[in-house]
Design a protein around this nucleic acid. Structure first.
Lengths: 121, 121
DNA sequence: GTATCATTTAGAGTATACTGTAAGTCAATA
DNA sequence: TATTGACTTACAGTATACTCTAAATGATAC
């Protein structure tokens, strides 16, 4: 699959895909003309990168994981460690967001009451 | 309270505080010498800004809210609308993160199994 | 009274993550 | 065969949110 097709399937711009390759986040095969050839496996991998990114992992951190991944089996426990660290980060983040959501709810309720008050003075 | 004291209490750098003021996120009183004077109310407000920011609201959006806030009571329903919008955003974000967390958990379990396999071949 | 510290301003610099341009090659379609 | 479109590279530009510097003033401490 070409970079254009891959771009459509993953929803990432070709700019970003080349940028990620440059950053060693994705290793891409080339055809005999030197053009990028993406596989189905790359889709999974890019979706995973997107999830990590969306949950607040920096590209530099994702890069670490990617490098280990392309080093092969012997880096599995290191990768596990990175993922566990991120898992805990996300869990903590969720807790914080839960609190903020409560706070926001209170504020919304306060506003609703105030507005109601002003409607019927 | 001076900007230095306020900075310590809120954990925001004086740079950031001036930056926020510049962006019209905070309106600050001045003393007869032209120096910023922060109040306890400003602490609450800055903490609220921090929560909005941490839950992914952009400064430009927070700015909108701030401007309405400083316009007074008549903008309450507009502010309520902004907060409700953000509330839904955070809820949706939480849902997504929950999914990603499940995915991450599966991956972690997979790694644990693989590593166990290699330990006892 | 002078040294030190906090404050002021405008504006420049940094980090992150893209996003786009320029100049050129290559291959398929009208 | 000419043009359209996708691709290549290197590198410049953008957006966001700070972060810092420089130069000056003002206030407190010894």
């Amino acid at each position: 699959m070409t970079i254009g097709e891959f771009s459509k399937k993953t929803g990432m711009s070709t700019y970003t895909l080349r940028y990620y390759e440059n950053k060693k986040l994705i290793v891409v095969l080339r055809d005999d003309k030197g053009r990028r050839v993406y596989t189905e496996k790359d889709i999974e991998w890019v979706q995973f990168i997107k999830r990590l990114k969306e949950t607040g992992m920096k590209l530099s951190e994702i890069q670490k994981y990617a490098l280990l991944r392309y080093e092969g089996e012997k880096t599995m426990s290191e990768r596990l460690e990175l993922l566990e660290k991120h898992y805990h980060f996300v869990v903590e983040q969720q807790k914080k967001w839960d609190m903020y959501l409560q706070n926001l709810k209170q504020k919304i309720i306060w506003y609703e009451k105030e507005i109601q008050k002003n409607k019927t003075p």
